[in-house]
Every structure is written in structure tokens, then in C-alpha cells.
Amino acid sequence: MPLPYYVSPEQMMQDKAEYAKKGIAKGRSIAAMEYNEGVVLVADNPSSLNKISEVYDRIAFAGAGRYSEFENLRKAGIRHADMKGFLYSRDDVNAKSLVNAYSQALGTVFSQEIKPLEVEILVVAVGMDDDPNEIYRVSFDGSIFDEKGFTVIGGKSESVLAKLKSRYVTTPSASSLAEVVVSCVAAMGEVTGQKLNTEGLEVAILSRSAKGRVFRRLPQSELSQYLNPSNPA
């Protein structure tokens, strides 16, 4: 009987990580950024399949990478949140436990399966009253990053992040929705080297002041008001 080839664990993990990173970098970016009234999610997404979604009253999800994989994670998240809210109370559904669950799922797949999930996800929540907003990024291996102010996933996320950091952002939480959307779109456009038009964007907000389900997708008309203020549609 031939002996199986020996591959060191380090090598195996490195290969998997490289594979996942490559898959995620192939796609387009999604940015999340705080503004004075909540958090906005901006995705460079010309397709009609959504990358951004509502999860619960004050929680939203965004996924980059392989669609079928993050779509499954999105649905699992909604099931988790709805189940928890039904069994306990709507107030007991929080972003932290959701992020932990995502981290567990991604981490388990990364260490146990041959093929890791080629996804990077964002879980965003707006606080009640004086509670701060939360922006969590979960990477393909299940590591959680608790981001402050803004973050970018998918595509050339590091370049977009660098552009946002250096040029556009002073204090995002003091900026208006329009300013923040313009910054995100400009940073993404510069990195990809093409001007993004409203049809190729998927933008949604979680607004702090709203009651109940606070997730809202911005319609094309509202987007073009922000991006082309000089020539109203």
C-alpha cells in the first residue's frame, strides 16, 4: 500500500488561505462606513443578485466572493436571528452573537474541509440611543475584525481602504450620507479605474433614528441625487 504524501499543516493552511484570498480578490469591493445618522453599505455590483441584505431590525449583512457561498451564510444568519428573536425577544438579537456564529462556521470549514469558503463577510449594526454602531468583518478563515468607522471587503479591498483612509475620510461619523456615499464610490472607482454609475451600485443604509426594521435600500433616484447633484434626474 502506497503511503499518502505528507503535507505539513503549515503548508496546507497556507495553500488554503492563498486559494481563498485569490477567489475573494477576483470580485468587486463592498464598503461600509458610518455617517452622522447611521451606517451605509456601498457595493460595486452591476448584477441584480444582491450582495447586501437585511438580517434583523438593526443588523445588515454584506458578502463578497463566491455568491453561492455567502448567500448560504446570509440565509443561515437570517434563520439564526429570526429564531432567536422568536424564542426570546426582538431585543435579544445582537450582532455579536451572529458574528461569533459566522466565525465558527467559517473557521470550521477552513480547518476541516478541503476547499475553504471563498468569502469575506460584513455584519453591521446600528445602536439604540447612545450605543455605538458596530462593524464586523469576518474573513474566510473565521477571524473577526472589529472595525471602527469604516471598512472594505472583497476585490482590491486594501487599495480601496487605503484610498478612503488617506484622501476621503476625516471623521466619517460626522459626515452626511451624501458625503459618505460619494467618498466610497470615488475610492472604489479610482481603484478599478472606471467611473461607477448608479446602475452599477447597490447601496443600503441602516438608520439610527428609525424604529423597528431600519434597513433600507437606496433607490436609483436618490443615489443619483447624491452622486450627480448638479444635474438632477
Binding site: 424564542l87 456564529a101 470550521t108
Partner: peptide, 24 residues
């Protein structure tokens, strides 16, 4: 809590029904 985010659970095809009643 019902959350079993094991890979099999979240990638299970027949779990993709959209009914909460069914899920519960």
C-alpha cells in the same frame, strides 16, 4: 439555541425553504 452553523447545516440544500414555521 438552534444555531448550528456547522458546514453541513449551512450548506444543506433542503434547508433552503423560506418558511420560518417549517424551520421552527
Amino acid at each position: 439555541l438552534p444555531l448550528k452553523f456547522t458546514p453541513l447545516r449551512c450548506l444543506e440544500f433542503n434547508d433552503s425553504e423560506s418558511s420560518f414555521h417549517q424551520l421552527l
